[in-house]
Amino acid sequence: MDRVNGAAAVAATPGAAPAGEAHITIRGLSKRFQGAVIYDNFDFDIPRGRFLSIFGPNGCGKSTLINIVAGLIPADAGTILFGGKTLMETKIGYVFQNYREALFPWLRSIDNIEYPLKLARLPKREREEKVEKLVTHLGVKIDLKRYPYELSGGQQQLVSIMRALVVEPEVLFLDEPFSALDYEMTLFMREQLQRIFLETGTTTVLVSHDLEEAVYLADRVLLLSRRPAQVADFPVIRMPRPRNDDTLSDPAFVAVKGHCLEVFQREVRKG
């Protein structure tokens, strides 16, 4: 078939694939939505300490995948383990596309960030220390005493990301986090996210509908087929970090992005 396996995909970026240890193992995942089969016996390993982008045709179940893995929606069948542990035993962070509806407008930004620590019953002092540490670490220059609705869209999403990071999650999930932002802010937020990843090395899973963004940020890109979703390809992105504007015009980057686009269009045409 014209579906490429991992080894063949590496041909796009020559050299041996880095032997990434699996962090999240998805086995036999099945999910139906109103009769439509989204996943049917789907297996996949999400590598540890890597940045994974998920990209695919509209409605193929990109968001569904991370929502199931993060426990937001139940799977019909299958097991998902985080380094052998269940979701309940794992600390995760999740960033929603719609920051306006994900933050709590009745809490100041700083209290939004502290909220997950409050749920974990941490005393006030420790909560403040953790937030303080995170703010310094990320070099955030927002007045966190303000309410979310007093901040710009980008700032709100940054608060969202900080709320997800403050618990020092083992995995950070982001569901199209920048698609409600304008282009200028999107570019800025990409850099913020890359910095966060470089600083923390947290296993990161990003669902994106922007191929350039998906490839630019990722160590590996999971390209999904039309539903029922299968792995169409799983290329390695070898560009050195930190990546910057020059990366975008680097021939190697352009080649791997072109390869991803080709796989994507082949999947779209199948529909």
């Binding site: 995760i92 999740y94 719609n98 509806e101 994900a102 933050l103 709590f104 997950p116 749920l119 709320r163």
Partner: peptide, 18 residues
């Protein structure tokens, strides 16, 4: 109540009562 907000609390580990 905004569903996203309820999910956000749930994913952060809030119990049904919380």
């Amino acid at each position: 109540a905004r569903k996203t907000r309820l999910l956000a609390a749930k994913v952060m580990g809030a119990s049904r009562l919380r």
